[in-house]
Structures are given as structure tokens and as C-alpha cells.
Amino acid sequence: MALITVAMGRLSQAFLLLLVMSIIGFIGIHSVGNPVFNVVNIETATPEDIRRATIALGLDQPVWRQYLLFIGNVVTGNFGTSYIYHLPAFGLVMSKLPATLELASIAMLVAAPVGTVLGLLAGRRNGTLLDRSILKTSVFALSVPSFWLSMMLILLGAILTGWFPSGGRGSTVSLLGQEWSFLTWNGLWHLTLPALALAIPNIALIARLARSGTIEVEQLDFTRFCRAKGLSPRRILFRHTLPNISVPIVTIIGLQFGGMLAFAVVVESIFAWPSVGKLLIDSIQLLDRPVVMATLTFISVAFVVLNALVDLFYAVLDPRVRLST
């Protein structure tokens, strides 16, 4: 029963989120400029061409009518056709998904273990130089803007050393009808720097969480028991401390993963990684409204779903939650 209430609450909030996002997105883009100037060739088009194209795109209608029309279409699953690419907008978003997924996954695959290990170490050595330097570095890594981090990675990894390319996606391989680059060496090579740029702040975040969790757990009686029983520190750390601090870590991994899927905008732009976030930025700048709306909708839905998944994990991982259901 409680589950249904929670689910309904979630659903209604997701719905509200979608509605608000769609209105803001719609009005925002409408107020910014006329997309028709990106559709016709402004250097050769006559005012008549522009006028006719405006009518053909339905942009001559009042904004509220355009919005109602849009909502009507969305209900039937149609987000419209991209002004720029002349393709169904939602299909376009989906075609960018593999690039987004693989970048976010690899970044998280790096960040989760590294961050956890660093956090456990710092927590165990609470107050030592190691702990303090991990803590301070994490403040730094968390606070510098991602574009700065990306720039430094390009400077160090690409320009000074020439080890990695400074941008682009590299070669891809077709699998399940989609193009993936993590399956080719060249693709992985291109993935390294952007993945690192996304991973570093997450390493810092996870490390801090793991550290504070470890400190808390280490003070608990059962850890003392374990130590008194003569268990090795390693065993205590990985068998007992880790499971006990895993709930917030899994939560943050889930949330951050959702964030990365959608909003690694800056990193993706700098590394020219053709993914959903970059599509959003490009479409906003090109005023490609159908694509902006489709992207925002996709992102909102992905967010809600991921949050729900995190809750589910919560129930599975945390013994207290499991007991109460």
C-alpha cells in the first residue's frame, strides 16, 4: 500500500516536472529568437522565403496555440521533426544514447571503485596526512568547474604529451544496431580523457562519502568486536565496513549516473562527444525546439526512473529497510 502511494507521488511529481519543463522550454525558446533563421540560408533567402518557411513550421501561430499543438502531438508520441536535421526529434535523441551511456558508464566504472577505496583508506587513517590530503584534494576536485578540469586534461593528456586525442569519438563498431566506441581500441582511446573528466569529481564525492561512513562505522561496537575476534583489518574493511557504508554510496552513484547521462554537457561539448547533453546544448543554440523538448523530456524521465531504481537498491542493500517491509 505504502509502495503504491510512493509510486503515485513519484509519478505525479514526474508529471509536474515534465509539464513545467515543457512550458519553460517552450516559452524560453520562443522568447529567444526565431528558429527559421537557422532553417533557411539567411545569406540567400528572400524575406518571402523566410515568411513562407515560418508559416510552414507553424511558427506564425501564437505561442499558446503552438504549445497546445505540441502537447497534442506528444500525447500521441510525436515530438515533431527537428528543424535542423529533418528527422523525428525523439529518434534523434535516442540515436545519441549509446555515446552518452558508454561515456557515463566508463566514468562511473572508474569512479566507483577508486573513490570507495580512497574513502575507505582515508577513513581508516582518520586524521593522518593521507586522510587530510585526500580530503583537501577532494574539496578541490569537487569545486573546480568541469570545463577547467577538461581543459587541464587536454593540456596534459593531449597537447603536452600527445598521448590522447583532444576530442571526438573515434571509430565505432555496430552492435545491436547502434554504434559503440568502447568496443574499439581507438574508441577507448578517445574515451579516456572525457571519462576521466567526468570521473574525477565523482571519485572525490564518493571518497568523501566513503570516508565519513567509514569513520562512523569504525566507532561502532561491532567493529571493535571484530577486531577483538582477531579478524584481519582487510577483512573487516571489506566484509563489514564496506557493506555498512554502501547505502549512501550506491545512492550517490545512482544519482550521479543519472546526472552524467543528461548533464555532462560541458565535458561533452569540450571533447566534442556526440551525446545527449551536447545535443541539448547545440539544439538550444540552434533553437531547434522539437529536439530541445524531446531531450528535456527524455532527461526528466531518465531522472525519475533512476531515482526509483536507487530507492529499490536502497531496499535491497539496507537491512533496516528490508526488515520494515
Binding site: 532553417v39 540567400t44 533567402a45 522565403d49
Partner: peptide
């Protein structure tokens, strides 16, 4: 028909 255009001229 519009929005196709540009070659018309």
C-alpha cells in the same frame, strides 16, 4: 513546399 526553399529563386 516550404520550409524547403532556397533553390526556388
Amino acid at each position: 513546399k516550404p520550409p524547403s526553399g532556397g533553390f526556388q529563386s
